[in-house]
């Protein structure tokens, strides 16, 4: 009965699937298929190495500081960094007085209230504050950016397929639209052609326009490539500030587990194949010793059988 109804149900599903499949084949044969414009022109992120790559990857503190400088002087004009607090900059190698100074001199102030009147106001940032958003709210952000919303950058490296190389490629990937780009895919008003962006036209104007846009204190040549790479490294840190301790802990855990597993394997082999004279002590009711004991107990209690 089960098998009869099962076969019936199975036939039903198969019939419905064949019907769908037939229409699919029909569509494949009759309709002409053109590759989408995105498919033709979109490019995968370029290969670029970061110090955080691989299981031993570490942050390059000097690079993070340079990247932070790029964020501060370029990106922060539009992009918030809401998950990160000024105090977190200690990870980058800044000392406490430096962090206090960075917070106090931050171009955007933190929303607050007047302690006397209770009216809304702003105050200078302190180390425990998170990075303040450049816009009061989403409407203000869109109004200032041609109706596009600059995303928060705290997690951007983890929130985009391709990670840091994608950020780097996007920042350096602005170019003139190719001549064979169809008219409907050409960047409209306020959009910019960038083959690394999913739909090819991005609302963000090229942020790194010229070499030397920022002046690095450590003497690194501030080419567009370097600035893009540094800020991508900085954003890797904002997205995953615990990356180094994760890698370190991981190595320690793996070494421990490797030793433990080898020991477990040896114990397993020893128990299964070690010592030909190994015998498991019989403790069951069929064990002669136990039987003798129970006979004695029964005898003592006067039970027959």
């Amino acid at each position: 009965m089960v098998r009869f109804f099962g076969a019936l149900v199975g036939m039903g599903f198969i019939a419905a699937l064949l019907w769908s499949f037939g229409w699919g084949v029909n569509a494949q044969l009759t309709e002409t298929h053109t590759q989408s414009v995105e498919h033709r022109f979109h490019q995968e992120p370029r290969d670029v190495a970061f110090s955080t790559d691989g299981p031993f990857g570490k942050f390059d503190r000097a690079q993070l500081q340079r990247g932070f400088q790029v964020y501060k002087e370029v990106c922060a004009a539009c992009h918030s960094l809401g998950q990160v607090a000024f105090r977190n900059l200690a990870d980058l190698g800044y000392e406490e007085p430096e962090i206090k100074a960075i917070a106090a001199q931050w171009q955007i102030e933190v929303p607050s209230i007047n302690p006397d009147t209770g009216e809304a106001t702003t105050r200078k940032a302190i180390a425990s504050d998170h990075f303040p958003s450049p816009y009061a709210n989403e409407v203000a952000a869109r109004a200032g950016n041609n109706n596009a919303l600059p995303p928060d950058l705290s997690l951007i490296v983890k929130a985009r397929e391709g990670g840091a190389p994608y950020i780097y490629s996007l920042l350096t990937g602005y170019q003139n639209a190719p001549a064979d780009l169809p008219a409907e895919a050409r960047p409209g008003q306020g959009l910019h052609y960038n083959p690394y962006f999913a739909n090819l036209n991005i609302a963000m104007p090229p942020p790194l326009t010229a070499d030397g846009q920022v002046t690095y204190a450590d003497g690194t040549n501030p080419t567009r490539e370097n600035m893009a790479k540094d800020v991508a490294a900085f954003l890797t840190w904002t997205a995953e500030p615990n990356l180094e301790s994760r890698h370190r802990t991981g190595l320690a855990v793996l070494i421990f587990l490797l030793i433990a597993t080898i020991l477990a394997y040896m114990a397993y082999q020893n128990i299964w194949h070690g010592g030909a004279d190994r015998r498991v002590r019989q403790t069951g009711p069929l064990d002669p010793e136990n039987q003798a004991k129970s006979r004695a107990a029964k005898k003592e209690a006067g039970i027959k059988g």
Binding site: R160, H247, L257, T261, A267, Y268
Partner: peptide, 29 residues
Amino acid sequence: AKDGFGVGLFMIAFAIMLFFFPNALGHAD
């Protein structure tokens, strides 16, 4: 004893993903 060895192998595979590719099985979005 046999399961103990199996658990060891499982934990090694788990630790490799957890510590070195923690987001590989997730989705960026």
